[in-house]
Amino acid sequence: VTLFVALYDYEARTEDDLSFHKGEKFQILNSSEGDWWEARSLTTGETGYIPSNYAAPV
């Protein structure tokens, strides 16, 4: 399992994006889409796309 942590807060701009807060942890589901990764929040259980430059490996 690849775990990442949010470096900044992010507010979803589309219904496919995932809103999150700094410090929140994610499981990365798909990182082959370039700058946007499909991720599941370990806090909320929700799935959506996150900007890859807002996350770092745990």
Rank of each mutant, 00 (worst) to 15 (best):
T14P: 01
L42E: 07
A6Q: 00
F20A: 01
E38A: 08
S41F: 04
T43D: 10
A56G: 08
E33F: 12
G34N: 12
E46G: 07
L7C: 09
D9M: 04
P51G: 03
R13S: 10
W36T: 06
D17N: 10
E38V: 15
Q27Y: 14
G48S: 01
N30A: 09
E33M: 14
E46Q: 14
E11F: 10
E11P: 04
E11D: 10
N30C: 11
V58C: 11
Q27M: 14
E46Y: 10
Y49M: 14
Y54P: 01
S52A: 14
Y8T: 06
R13W: 07
E11C: 13
L7A: 03
T14M: 10
L29A: 05
G23L: 03
T44S: 10
G45H: 06
A6H: 01
E46D: 09
E24V: 04
E38S: 09
Y8M: 09
T14N: 14
L42Y: 07
A39G: 05
F4W: 15
Y10T: 00
W37F: 08
R40S: 05
G23S: 03
Y54C: 09
R13Q: 14
G45W: 07
N30D: 12
L18T: 02
E46S: 09
A6L: 03
S31V: 12
Y10M: 02
D9K: 04
T2L: 13
E15W: 09
T47V: 14
L29C: 11
F26Q: 00
G45L: 07
V1W: 14
S41I: 09
N53Q: 11
S31A: 13
S31H: 11
L7R: 04
I50K: 01
H21G: 07
L3Q: 07
R13E: 10
T43C: 13
A39T: 03
K22H: 06
Q27F: 14
D9I: 03
S31R: 14
Y54R: 04
W36L: 08
Q27G: 02
T14Y: 15
A12Y: 02
A6W: 02
S19P: 05
G45I: 05
T43E: 14
V58I: 13
E15G: 14
F20Y: 01
N30S: 11
G48F: 04
P57Q: 08
Y54A: 14
V1D: 12
Y54M: 09
S31K: 14
A12K: 09
T44C: 04
F20T: 02
V58Y: 13
G48M: 03
V1H: 13
V5K: 04
K25W: 14
E46P: 01
S52M: 10
T44Y: 02
E33Q: 14
R13M: 12
A39H: 00
I28C: 05
S41W: 02
D9Q: 05
E24I: 04
Q27A: 10
E33D: 15
A55G: 06
E46T: 08
G45Y: 06
D16K: 15
E15C: 13
S31D: 12
E46R: 15
L7M: 08
G34F: 09
L42W: 07
Y10R: 04
G45M: 07
D35S: 10
R40G: 00
N30L: 06
T14Q: 10
L29K: 06
D17Q: 15
D16F: 15
G45A: 04
A6E: 00
I28G: 00
T47C: 10
V1Y: 14
A56W: 09
L42P: 02
S52R: 13
L18G: 01
Y10G: 00
A55W: 05
E15I: 11
A56H: 08
A55K: 02
D17G: 15
S32P: 11
W37H: 03
F4L: 07
L29M: 09
R40E: 05
S19V: 03
S32I: 11
E46H: 12
Y10L: 03
N30I: 07
P51C: 10
P57L: 08
H21E: 09
W37E: 00
E11K: 11
V5Y: 12
I28M: 06
K22S: 06
Y54L: 10
D16S: 15
D16P: 04
E38N: 07
T47Q: 10
K25N: 07
P57T: 05
V58W: 13
P57K: 07
I28W: 02
L42M: 12
Y54V: 05
Y8Q: 08
L42N: 04
R40M: 12
F20L: 05
F4E: 00
S32A: 12
K25Q: 12
P57F: 06
I50L: 04
E38F: 15
A55E: 01
G45T: 03
A56L: 08
R13D: 07
W37R: 02
E24K: 02
L18S: 01
Q27K: 08
D9W: 11
E15M: 11
L18H: 02
A12I: 02
I28H: 00
P57M: 08
W36N: 05
T2N: 12
Q27D: 07
E24F: 04
D17L: 09
H21M: 12
A55P: 01
F4P: 00
R13H: 10
A55H: 04
V5Q: 07
S52Y: 10
D35Y: 13
L18A: 01
E38Y: 15
P51T: 02
F26M: 06
F4R: 03
A6Y: 01
T14L: 09
G45K: 04
K25H: 13
Y54G: 07
S19L: 02
I28F: 03
A12T: 03
I50S: 00
Q27H: 12
G34Q: 11
I50D: 00
T47K: 10
E46M: 14
T2H: 11
V58H: 07
A55R: 02
D35V: 09
Y54T: 04
E33V: 11
L7Y: 03
N30M: 08
G48P: 00
D17V: 14
A55T: 12
A12L: 02
A39M: 05
E33S: 14
E24N: 05
H21A: 12
S52Q: 07
T43K: 13
A12D: 01
V58N: 06
Y49D: 01
A55M: 15
D16V: 13
A6V: 04
Y8D: 06
P51N: 09
T44P: 01
K22C: 08
L29D: 04
K25V: 15
D9V: 05
K22E: 07
S19Y: 03
N30H: 08
T47I: 14
A6D: 00
G23Y: 05
D16Q: 14
Y10N: 02
A12P: 05
L18I: 10
T2S: 11
L29G: 03
L3S: 07
Y54H: 07
E11T: 13
A6N: 00
A39C: 05
E38P: 06
I28E: 00
T47D: 04
E33N: 15
L7P: 02
E11M: 11
W36S: 06
G23Q: 02
L3C: 10
S32D: 11
S41A: 07
H21S: 13
F26Y: 01
A55S: 06
Y49Q: 08
H21W: 08
V58D: 09
P51M: 06
D35A: 10
Y54Q: 04
L18E: 00
E46I: 11
Y49W: 15
R13I: 11
E38D: 05
E24L: 03
I28P: 02
G48L: 03
L3D: 05
W36A: 05
G48V: 03
W36D: 02
V1M: 13
S52C: 10
T14K: 13
T2C: 14
H21R: 15
Q27P: 00
E33T: 12
R13K: 12
E38T: 12
T47Y: 09
S19G: 07
E11Q: 12
L7E: 03
V5G: 01
T14D: 11
T47H: 08
D9R: 04
P51S: 05
F20V: 04
D35C: 14
Y10S: 02
D35L: 12
D17R: 15
K22D: 01
L42S: 04
F26W: 02
I28T: 01
S31M: 15
A12H: 05
G34I: 10
L3P: 05
G23W: 05
E33G: 14
L3R: 05
Y54W: 08
E11L: 10
T14S: 14
D9G: 06
E11S: 10
